[in-house]
Amino acid sequence: MILFFGTRPGKPETKHLFNCTCPYCQQHGTLTAVTQKNYFHIFWIKLFKISSSTVAECNHCKRAFYENEFTEEMNSEFSKTVN
């Protein structure tokens, strides 16, 4: 019997952070956060989430911020849009 298993990424979720200011270029309302989740699968059926990562990018200066680099303003706005 052949068993296909492994990991694969899910669909990315995009959230616009309209009420945030970019810490690098100081532009207001230009941040977009993308969350990517990785899943364990058997026969291409997702069973459970292994990990997730979130990156915010400024549409003006193209600077990217990992989740551990988020400011308090970015964290509060991201948690509002997730819930």
Rank of each mutant, 00 (worst) to 15 (best):
T54N: 04
T14H: 02
E73F: 02
E13N: 01
N38V: 03
A56G: 13
Y24P: 00
C22R: 00
Y39N: 05
C58A: 07
N68M: 14
P23H: 01
N19L: 07
K46R: 09
P12F: 00
T7L: 14
V55K: 05
S76M: 06
M1F: 09
I2W: 03
H28W: 04
T30F: 14
T71Q: 04
I50R: 13
T81D: 10
I2Y: 02
F70V: 05
G10H: 01
T71R: 10
T35Q: 01
K62I: 08
T30Y: 11
G10M: 03
T30E: 15
K46A: 14
T7Q: 14
S53Y: 07
P23A: 03
H41P: 11
P12Y: 00
Q36W: 02
K11A: 15
C25Q: 07
K15R: 05
C61F: 07
G6W: 04
V55N: 03
F4Q: 08
A56F: 06
Q26F: 08
S51H: 05
R8P: 04
F5Q: 14
T35L: 06
E67C: 07
P9N: 03
T54C: 04
R8G: 11
E67R: 02
Y66E: 13
P9Q: 02
L31Y: 03
S52M: 06
T7M: 14
N68Q: 13
T81K: 11
T81S: 13
C25R: 02
Q27P: 09
T14S: 03
C25A: 14
A56I: 09
S52W: 01
K37A: 05
N38L: 06
I2T: 13
M74R: 00
E69L: 07
Y39R: 05
F4H: 10
F18I: 14
I50S: 13
L31V: 10
N38F: 06
T54M: 04
F70G: 08
F65Q: 01
S76A: 14
K62R: 12
C20Y: 00
F18L: 12
T14C: 01
H60S: 15
Q26T: 06
F48S: 09
Q36A: 07
Y66W: 10
Q36D: 10
S76Y: 09
F70C: 09
C58W: 00
K49R: 12
P9L: 01
S53M: 05
S51A: 11
K80M: 09
E57W: 01
Q26K: 07
G6C: 04
P23G: 02
G6M: 07
K37F: 09
E69P: 11
Q36K: 04
A56K: 00
E67Q: 09
V55L: 06
F48Q: 08
E69K: 11
F70E: 06
T7K: 15
T14A: 06
L17H: 01
G29Y: 03
K62Q: 13
Q26L: 01
W44P: 11
V82W: 11
R63F: 04
T54H: 01
T35Y: 02
C61T: 13
V34L: 02
